[in-house]
Design a protein around this nucleic acid. Structure first.
Length: 805
RNA sequence: GCGGAUGUGGCGGAAUGGCAGACGCAGCAGACUCAAAAUCUGCCGGUGGUGACAUCGUGCGGGUUCAAGUCCCGCCAUCCGCACCA
């Protein structure tokens, strides 16, 4: 054996060489074909890198390295999503400035990533907390504000009692704060909002033109929750006012037997004097307000409610007088905050009607037979036919919906309406460690944007980062900073003291990588035109309805304002599975099953860690860590290293392995771009097993193998390349080519079956005709051909099946 | 409840409708060693048989097909989202 494989001796060496040679820098030669590979930039937490991080980073590193070898100008950048609560909380606890905490964490993360040998272009590193970066985050906010898409609104928000901060709906999980797990209550605050709802349709339509894995598309569509229906006005008896409802089932209007309004509905206060049971209503309302969202969900099954005394409504299609109830199963935040109840054809209305003994009128009949709406609501829209509904009778549900919508619009008692589950984005945070919102409030002029020339609006130094109990940001205590003059009238004014949420900086970071040092624009139009869209973006499923949706929204807005050249930011989106502990549970300190990537690098080397994480299983599924599995991958790399012992001076591929070589190049090339890293590695393992079986490996076979393996194990293959005296550097050697014709053996062994069961195998020439193969096959199974042969099947090069009776 | 995914040896996992279990791990046996580790060689789904071989086998029940882990219909289990959205 020539030398021993000692990763520690070679990994640092190559990392330094790559850095010195700027091996992986994306060039500004915009004439070359480009490839933009992107992984989600991490939040540099104090814990350092988790073994989950290298999985997606290695996967796209493989793609990036391969694309470079195929002649592409590749952009594979990395940066830091560094604003956020954990850093701020750590800063509060340890009395260190968050800036310093961030700097330390970034340094640690960067060292760890570099020790894994990623081909990131570190010259394009970005950090969302850098004023030169957040200048442009603020700039985009101003654009949104000027376009009327950022507005301030008094609204009940999700308030985390521990973080003392308002949360977006997406950040509340099971009624508790996504970050700290504390209780979330509703609190009324004036908050900055972004009108993402204005882009709801565009965000749905855009999905048709991109190559995202299906489950991401489905989740986004469900989250946006588009529904088509109608708004209908019900008259209040003896009143001028109409009570407007939203329904997706206007066809069932004749079956509406009562109405329900949300406890917060404004009509309740408006008709206070005429409501005969005001005390009861108030008691219900208070009880509902006290319930947290979590309790409301928990109690979802059991319907509660109170009838409004003294006020009734008139069904506009049949003029019947019906009662109005209040109940918290109707949400003020969706539709109009009021519904018409059709208990015969809606499960929730049915539950409510049963509980309070309200009439149930059937207006849709099943075509399959009897439907008893006293037993359960009949909600099947596919098979129903309308009954008891005057001019709709006999129609199926789809036609009846349309006819009723036309009717409503003709008579002026309603109209078609599309609703979304998606809400506007709560964009304020009452926190220090975020981008300041560049807005000034003037008594005379209202909310006034800063002039672009004032950007970046720097985050000022404060004495305390503690949020306050009254819900104000720590910045509010900085009177010198808060008190300013109005950019509009020059009078006294106050700065906005809320900051932006963590999602702001990550909503456009991929644009900045294309031109990270530009101080005149977020990136030059040339750079954007060349690099966009991102060709392949990989990230976690948990960001599907947050980051991914938010960044698509910003991008579409920038596109509409002609700042970016593409309507979608990412052409392709994939997702990796989680890495679980050895026991199959999520890794956590409390479970004691955490694996530290540094330990693996120290003991086995970065190339082993990379190989193992790619070999661990299907990329999109979660996988359990296995220390034995890591050892196996190290063993594989050792065996590759030791191929030097049987390396000959011969060139070309040897006769016995020629087919295998072409097959392997084909398989590895395909698998690397199709998330099948595990089978690509298996194919290379199988190839080296064959080298050992044959007892030698030619120069060209060895070159091909280490080139194919280079994207996975870049350090050791580069070292081998040099040790063997091959020319230049492996990282800029051309990717191996294969000859399709040579991927198939000229003689193949195929199975001979009787009635689908294999009885023998025969060797044939791959081009042999059926007339040649069948007799050969029959000969091989002659002793078993005891019945009548009914049919003889030959699938060329694959199988023979003799059907016998 | 709705949506999405998953189910194959002791384990992780392979299989354009065409010889199920590639590749790896663990295990067993042997070689090397004073011994162990490392390394190398062989075996490695169940049952029956000394054996060639036979037979069963991809969560369960049906179906399509010459042929089904793969396609269709109906279930079960587990995991992950969402959840009173009218």
């Amino acid at each position: 054996m020539k030398t021993q494989y000692i990763p520690k001796k070679i990994e640092r060496k190559w990392q330094t060489i790559w850095e010195d040679e700027k091996a992986f820098a994306a060039t500004c030669d915009y004439t070359k074909p480009k490839f933009y590979a992107l992984v989600e930039f991490p939040y540099p937490s104090g814990q350092g890198l988790h073994v989950g991080h290298p999985r997606p980073y290695t996967a796209l590193d493989i793609v990036a390295r391969k694309k470079r070898m195929q002649g592409y100008n590749v952009l594979y950048p990395m940066g830091w999503d560094a604003f956020g609560l954990p850093t701020e909380n750590y800063a509060i606890k340890n009395k260190i400035h968050p800036q310093i905490v961030t700097k330390n964490n970034v340094q640690r993360f960067k060292e760890q990533l570099q020790s894994l040998g990623y081909s990131f272009d570190w010259d394009r590193e970005i950090n969302t907390t850098d004023p030169d970066y957040y200048k442009w985050t603020q700039w985009i906010f101003l654009k949104l504000f000027k376009a009327g898409l950022a507005y301030k609104k008094e609204m009940p928000i999700n308030w985390c009692t521990s973080c003392k901060v308002g949360l977006a709906n997406e950040e509340v999980v099971n009624g508790v704060c996504e970050r700290c797990g504390s209780e979330v209550v509703r609190k009324v605050k004036s908050e900055w909002m972004l009108k993402i709802t204005e882009y709801a349709d565009k965000l749905i339509e855009g999905l048709d033109g991109v190559d995202y894995i299906e489950k991401v598309k489905v989740s986004q569509k469900n989250w946006i929750g588009r529904s088509e229906g109608a708004e209908v006005d019900f008259s209040l008896k003896d009143k001028e006012d109409k009570l407007r409802v939203y329904t997706t089932r206007p066809d069932t209007l004749f079956g509406a037997t009562y109405m329900v309004v949300s406890p917060e509905h404004p009509y309740i206060d408006k008709y206070k004097d005429e409501i005969t049971n005001w005390d009861e209503i108030m008691a219900y309302r208070e009880a509902a307000a006290k319930k947290s969202d979590f309790e409301r969900t928990e109690l979802a099954k059991d319907k509660t409610g109170v009838v409004l005394g003294g006020i009734t409504a008139i069904n506009p299609v049949n003029n019947k007088e019906i009662p109005i109830w209040i109940s918290d199963y109707v949400l003020m935040t969706y539709g109009t905050g009021a519904i018409m109840a059709v208990p015969a054809h809606d499960d929730r209305d049915w539950d409510f009607a049963k509980k309070f003994n309200l009439p149930i009128i059937q207006v849709v009949e099943g075509t399959q037979g009897d439907v008893d709406v006293n037993e359960a609501a009949f909600t099947d829209v596919a098979t129903g036919k309308l009954i008891n509904s005057d001019f709709l009778n006999g129609l199926d549900v789809t036609d009846a919906k349309e006819k009723m919508k036309d009717f409503l619009e003709e008579k002026g008692i309603g109209n078609r309406k599309v609703n979304y589950k998606l809400r506007d984005w709560v964009f304020s945070r009452q926190r220090y460690w975020g981008e300041p919102i560049p807005i000034v409030h003037c008594e005379k002029c209202g909310y006034v944007p800063l002039d672009e020339s004032e950007l970046p609006l720097m985050l000022p130094e404060v004495d305390s980062y503690m949020p306050t109990d009254n819900g104000e940001s720590p910045l509010a205590a900085m009177t010198d900073w808060v008190n300013t003059i109005c950019p509009c009238c020059g009078g006294p004014a106050k700065r906005e003291t809320d900051t932006m949420p963590q999602w702001a900086g990550s909503s456009w970071y991929f644009l900045r990588y294309t031109d990270p040092c530009n101080d005149e624009a977020l990136a030059s139009p040339e750079a954007l035109k060349y690099w966009l869209p991102v060709d392949w973006y990989n990230g976690g499923m948990e960001h599907t309805t947050l980051h991914l949706l938010y960044s698509r929204f910003w991008h579409k807005f920038l596109y509409d304002n002609k700042i970016v050249p593409t309507s979608e930011p990412y052409q392709k989106r994939t997702s990796h599975g989680m890495i679980l502990g050895e026991n199959g549970e999520k890794m956590s300190k409390s479970r004691g099953n955490v694996v530290n990537p540094d330990d693996i690098v120290n003991e086995f080397g970065a190339d082993t860690l990379r190989t193992y994480e790619m070999f661990i299983g299907a990329f999109d599924l979660s996988a359990s860590w296995s220390n034995d599995g890591v050892k196996g991958c190290r063993r594989f790399l050792d065996r590759v290293w030791k191929l030097q012992d049987i390396l000959t001076d011969e060139t070309g591929y040897s006769k016995e392995l020629e087919t295998k070589m072409h097959q392997t190049i084909k398989k590895v090339s395909y698998d690397f771009e199709n998330l099948k890293y595990n089978t690509a590695i298996a194919a290379m393992m199988s190839l080296i097993n064959d080298f050992y079986k044959v007892g030698k490996v030619t120069k060209d076979e060895f070159k091909t193998l280490i080139t194919l393996l280079n994207p996975v194990a870049p350090h050791m293959t580069e070292e081998l390349w040099e040790l063997c005296g091959f020319e230049g550097r492996l990282y800029n050697t051309a990717w191996p080519e294969y000859d399709e014709a040579k991927t198939v053996e000229s003689t193949v062994e195929i199975a001979v079956q009787i009635n689908g069961k294999t009885k023998a195998t025969i060797a044939i020439n791959k081009d042999d005709a059926k007339e040649v193969v069948i007799p050969k096959a029959k000969e091989a199974i002659a002793d078993k051909l005891t019945g009548n042969v009914v049919k003889e099947i030959y699938v060329p090069g694959r199988i023979v099946n003799i059907v016998m009776k």
